[in-house]
Design a protein around this nucleic acid. Structure first.
Lengths: 335, 335
DNA sequence: CTGAAAGCGCTAACAT
DNA sequence: ATGTTAGCGCTTTCAG
């Protein structure tokens, strides 16, 4: 069995008390250099590691933070996670990742699970299906630090990090307009998500600026965020099957690729331009091609984590919360 | 601050002893139905959750397993992780994911970190850079259960799960040959990886079967597994810059896409066929197109996790270890 | 059927 | 400078 050396083992072997060993190990100034050296050398020799579980129990904190995302396979989220880890590790925190696959049920289960694991704080990007927020609100009221990123819950009073979705969507839509498109459809994510409303706003503002009427029939929502491939295919086919648009503005990564697949399958020579949010590294290789809006995912992950650790380590309850917004970049592509 | 209810709180509130509460909570048969009901109801009411950290300390195990992969953004690994989670969750284990980004240093740090977090077992796919295995061997000798998947360490006596790389590579190479290709290059991963040797073996066997000589100049290794984009670009350009091959067989996911990018950039109309390992869901949309070998990633994750939990929960030390091999599937594509 | 007490590994008053 | 002790939350003998 896996039975690591404990402080007690060392104390016994060296004929010292556990507290002396403990203090020597953490370099307490009250311990003589001599003893310190003996202890340190011996600890080294037997490959001693303090048991973080015991520590957590004592300190009532685990030095780990939980992350709730829809899926790590999505490049936006894996890049954000890299950002999260970079900050967390440097401050001595462990990161526990949990995927909802855009399912509300999984989100509830995972949040509970993480809370049970005594995490010190939670980084959340909501699942596409989530409409009821009580699982998060309950924990927040109990004092668990929570920071939202990307898909935020506006009604909760805490730090939030997102990209400037309105502006990003506006730029992409205007780009399509300047390419000469008049009928621009919008393939959107689940309607209750913060990003959905924001991106739709940018889309509509661009249309209005250029005197193109907003047509509700040209807007479709995918309530499972594209987790179900068929829902994307159905939505796109409704666009193209009669009176097709000359462009589609797509609101998120998984939807963008789903949209391209459908176009490739059912509208091979259609010349429909597509612009959409995507952080995939493969975008440049795609055909049909995709003009894409890229979010500063790594940066967002970093910022959110810094904010979270600030709350966790703050001596006093925080009253003032920030909402940070980072700019996206548009990458034109294709004909 | 975040201070959950404890068993002690309940005991006090109900005027019982902590042991009675503890037993009632876990349905101990020695407790009267009446008391049990009172305790359960009250626990429900105050939203009591047992503290898993205290439990871990007591039981000397954490019901969590660590996973070491190079990166979650790689679809092969994210699919494998889904498989891992599906088994782990159903058996009551938590999954802690850790990325090496194919760096040896990160691998060492992460392994130590996980071991310190008192995980009950470790699932490992080696980083491309790793040549020294003492960080893993040390833990294994101390009794930590370890199961390898995909990039296995053959010299360690434990369970292993991989796909049938020799066969997969053979089929892909033979497919290229049957397409009429004669000069088939091989873009390989770091030479010390198990998968590299196996896939090269399949490649060479296919060539030999069809009486094509193996040419060392047509084989290039990427020692950072493509983490450094330039290394892929350099390798591919060496292939194509003079006397280009008519096909390239690529040994892994990141390399496959890197190879396509380079071809798109420097050999747009070359007609070089590419076949490679990839579990990306975007493959069908790529241009240039890629014939791909797909690994049963989800299945591999499941199997590896089942094996790991078997070791963890086994009453007796395990002596007989298995090496499972799963079949890949070839998906022809393009002209 | 219920309670008291010890112990998991570690730290931190509080002695000495 | 070092030792003793209590306690973090929970389970589990051992008593009653």
């Amino acid at each position: 069995m896996f039975k690591p050396t404990t402080i007690k083992d060392i104390a016994k072997a060296l004929n010292l008390s556990t507290s002396t060993v403990s203090r020597a190990l953490r370099g307490g100034y009250e311990i003589s250099e001599e003893t310190k050296k003996i202890v340190l050398d011996y600890a080294e020799k037997v490959n001693f590691k303090r048991n973080p579980i015991a520590l957590s129990l004592k300190e009532r904190r685990s030095y780990s933070i939980g992350v709730i995302v829809c899926e790590v396979a999505n490049q936006f989220f894996s890049q954000a996670i890299d950002g999260i880890e970079s900050v967390a590790y440097s401050k001595g925190y462990h990161v526990i990742i949990s995927q909802t696959h855009d399912s509300y049920d999984r989100e509830v289960i995972n949040v509970e699970h993480l809370a049970n694991r005594s995490i010190d704080g939670l980084l959340v990007s909501l699942s596409a299906e989530t409409k009821d927020y009580s699982h998060l609100e309950k924990l927040h009221e109990q004092g668990l630090p929570i920071v939202f990123f990307d898909r935020v819950l506006n009604s909760m009073n805490t730090h939030k990090v997102s990209s400037n979705n309105v502006k990003g969507a506006f730029e992409a839509t205007e780009f399509l307009i300047k390419k000469g498109c008049k009928r621009i459809a919008h393939l959107a994510n689940a309607s209750q998500l913060s990003i959905t409303a924001e991106r739709q706003k940018g889309y509509e503002e661009a249309l209005k600026k250029h005197n193109i009427p907003v047509d509700d029939k040209l807007i479709k929502y995918c309530k499972h965020g594209g987790r179900d491939k068929m829902e994307v295919e159905i939505a796109v086919r409704e666009f193209i099957d009669h009176d097709p648009p000359d462009a589609i503005f797509v609101a998120s990564d998984r939807l963008s690729t789903g949209c391209l697949s459908t176009l490739k399958k059912y509208a091979t020579n259609s010349n429909i331009l597509v612009a959409g949010f995507s952080n995939s590294e493969l975008v440049e290789l795609l055909n049909p091609s995709l003009s894409y809006i890229r979010q500063p995912a790594f940066e967002m992950g970093k910022k959110a984590t810094e904010m979270l650790i600030n709350i966790i380590e703050s001596k006093y309850p925080i009253e003032e919360f920030e909402s940070i917004m980072l700019d996206t970049t548009l990458h034109p592509n294709g004909a």
